[in-house]
Design a binder for these strands. Structure first.
Lengths: 229, 229
DNA sequence: AGCTTTCGCTACGACTCGTAGCGTATATCT
DNA sequence: AGATATACGCTACGAGTCGTAGCGAAAGCT
C-alpha cells in the first residue's frame, strides 16, 4: 500500500502496521520456494543503522553491513539494489517514532514538531544518511520515489494533522479550494522541514527551545509582525 | 581572509576578488621552488564541475577529474585532501553569481532571492554536489567550516543586504540588540534557504514564480495572516 | 649557477563492487 | 512422498577506485 513502484514489494500477509516499512526488491512473481527470512531483514536493517553510527555514510560498505548482520553479502543484494535503497529503508523506521501530541494551540504544536524533528536529526544515523540519500536521489528518480514514500510522507502526516487540529480550534480557516489547500500544506511542510534541516545540518547550530520559539513566531506571525518579546 | 583553517591557504598576491575562491592544501611553508600552476587549478575546478554534470557526485572519481583536466592524479592530491574538498571549491564559484538587484520592496526582493537560489539549484552540478558535501560534513568539522566559508557565507550576504534595504525603506525596524538582530538574520536565512532546498531537492517540485509568491506571503505575513488572493 | 618545489608518468597494495557457481536448507504444488 | 522452486551461506572472481611512492624533467626563486 505504501510501496507503489514496481521495483518494490511488500509481503502480502503482515500486520498492517509494518507493511509500510517493508520496501525491497521483490522475489520472483511465483510464490513457491523457500521464503525470505524475516529475521535476516531485521538483522540487516539494524546492522545498517549500527554501521551508519560507527562509520557514517561514505565509509559504510555492503560487505561490512553483511558481516555485522551475520549474513552473506549476496543476501543483501537479493533484497536491495544498492547502498542507497538499503539505507533509506533502514532509516525510515526512525520516522515512525515521530508523533504529534496535542499541545493545545497551533503555536505549541509547531514548536513540538520542530523539536521532535530536530531530535531525530541529532541521531547520527539520521544525520549522515538523510542528506546523502537525497543527494543520490537527484540523479535517480526511483530512489526519489522511495524516499518520498518511506520518509517524506511520514513527516508530512504531522503537518496535515497539525493543520486539522488548528482548523478545529478555529486558529486556521478551512480552505474551500482543495488544490489550494494542498499547495499550502506542501509549502508549510517545506518551510518547516527545510528550516530545521538547514539549521541543524548546514548552519550546524542547535535547534533548541529558543530557536523553536523564534521560528514558530516567524511562521505564524510573519516578518512584518511585531515580535513577541 | 576567507580561509581561517590552518589546512587551507590562499596565494598572497592575487586580486582581492578571487582570493575567497582559492582554498586548497597549502604548499610547504617556504616560498622557494616552482610555484603551483594556476592554469592547473582552473582546469581542475572546471573539470570537476563538468564531471559533476556528466557523472553526478557518487560516480565522480579523482582519476576521472584528473584525466578531464589533462593533469596527473598526484597533482590533484597535492592540492585537495579528497573528493569533498575539491567539490566544495569547484561549486563555490557558482555562488558568486548570486546577486540581489534592488526590486523596490521587501516582498519583491525576497521573491528575487528565492528565484535566484532556485535557478542555481537547477544546475546539475549544484544539485548533486550540495547535499552530498553537506552529508559528508556531518562527520567532518573541517569540511563543515570549509562549506561555511566557501558557500554559506556567500548566500548569507544576500539576506543581510535585503534586510538592510528593507530597514532603509522602513519596511523592517532597526533592532537595537545586535545579538538579537544577528539571531533573527540567521533564522531568516535558514528559513529561506532551507525551504528552497527542501522544495527543490526533497519534494522535487518546481520553485517557480507562483511558489515564490506564496512563500514570500507566508514569510512576510505569517500563517495566521489572510493570504493575498 | 644551485636549490627547491612542482609536474607527468608509472606502478603498487589495499579495498570495494556486484556477480557467478556450488551445495544445502526450506518452503509450496502435484 | 516426491518434484519443484527459491533462499541461504560460502568462495571466488574481474573490474574499478583509492591514496601513495618513486622517478626524471621542468620551472621558478635567490
Amino acid at each position: 500500500m505504501i510501496c507503489l513502484t514496481e521495483s518494490v514489494w511488500a509481503p502480502p500477509d503482515l500486520p498492517t502496521g509494518i507493511v509500510g516499512r517493508m520496501c525491497r526488491t521483490p522475489p520472483p512473481a511465483g510464490r513457491k520456494g523457500r521464503p525470505r527470512s524475516l529475521e535476516a531483514d531485521a538483522a540487516i536493517l539494524s546492522a545498517t543503522r549500527e554501521a551508519l553510527v560507527d562509520l557514517g555514510w561514505s565509509k559504510l560498505t555492503m560487505g561490512d553491513v553483511a558481516a555485522r548482520a551475520g549474513v552473506a553479502k549476496t543476501t543483501l543484494y537479493r533484497r536491495w539494489a544498492g547502498k542507497s535503497e538499503l539505507v533509506v529503508d533502514a532509516v525510515a523506521v526512525l520516522f515512525d517514532e515521530l508523533e504529534l501530541p496535542d499541545l493545545g494551540s497551533l503555536a505549541a504544536d509547531v514548536r513540538g514538531v520542530v523539536l521532535q524533528f530536530a531530535a531525530l536529526l541529532e541521531r547520527p544515523e539520521a544525520r549522515t544518511a538523510l542528506m546523502a540519500v537525497v543527494a543520490e536521489s537527484t540523479r535517480d528518480e526511483a530512489l526519489r520515489a522511495r524516499i518520498r514514500h518511506a520518509i517524506v510522507d511520514r513527516q508530512k502526516r504531522l503537518v496535515l494533522e497539525g493543520r486539522r487540529r488548528a482548523q478545529e480550534r478555529g486558529e486556521l480557516p478551512y480552505e474551500a479550494d482543495e488544490s489550494a489547500a494542498s499547495r499550502t500544506a506542501d509549502l508549510i511542510f517545506d518551510v518547516v522541514a527545510g528550516a530545521v534541516v538547514h539549521r541543524s545540518l548546514v548552519s550546524a547550530e542547535p535547534v533548541d527551545g529558543e530557536w523553536a520559539r523564534a521560528f514558530t513566531g516567524l511562521l505564524l506571525g510573519g516578518l512584518t509582525a511585531p515580535s513577541p518579546g
